[in-house]
């Protein structure tokens, strides 16, 4: 049986209630939209890139606790990182969220993001947690079409 507390960890509930970097970033030179129409999750990721470095990042939109907390924690984890470093974190997150079996997945170096380790027990919620990350990648790559993880 999957435990509800594994999904909605305190850190996630906290970031849902008080999302960090939750605003429209006026100085953004990269942005992308993410939309999961079945869920109704919708967000925009804003980046202020300085060369290869994510100088600032913010997001805005509406969604479930998992998608919102994921976006919030994502902004904290990649701020100040290079594009390559951000992509490396993305890869680890991807493994964490889709890992099978969950327990064997290497989550080292993810820090607070490890709170999403419970998500893979809830297959229908994986797309919620990954939406922000796919949107970040789209922003980095300057992809214009809205991304979806549904």
């Amino acid at each position: 049986m999957s435990d509800l507390g594994e999904l909605y960890q305190q850190v996630i509930l906290d970031h849902n209630k008080r999302p960090r970097n939750f605003r429209r970033l006026e100085e953004a030179n990269h942005r992308a939209d993410g939309h999961n129409p079945l869920c109704g999750d919708q967000l925009t990721v804003y980046l202020q890139m300085e060369g290869d470095v994510i100088r600032d990042i913010a997001f805005h939109g509406a969604g479930c606790a998992i998608s919102k907390a994921s976006a919030s924690l994502m902004t904290e984890s990649v701020k100040g990182k290079t594009k390559l470093e951000a992509e490396q974190i993305f890869e680890k997150m991807h493994k964490l969220l889709t890992g099978d079996p969950c327990a064997l997945v290497e989550t080292g170096g993810l820090g607070k993001l490890a709170v999403f380790s419970g998500v893979c027990e809830f297959p229908v919620r994986v797309k919620c947690a990954s939406l922000a990350w796919h949107t970040l990648r789209a922003a980095l790559e300057q992809i214009k079409e809205a991304v979806s993880t549904e």
């Binding site: 509800l4 999904l7 079945l38 869920c39 109704g40 479930c64 606790a65 998992i66 919102k68």
Partner: peptide, 26 residues
């Protein structure tokens, strides 16, 4: 302050099956 999907997930863990989403009526 609570998205419908979170309501659905928490209720599911109380054994209660409801639907959350746009109900094919966007």
């Amino acid at each position: 302050g609570v998205h419908a999907h979170d309501i659905g997930t928490v209720l599911d863990h109380a054994g209660i099956a409801i639907r959350a989403g746009h109900h094919c009526a966007m």
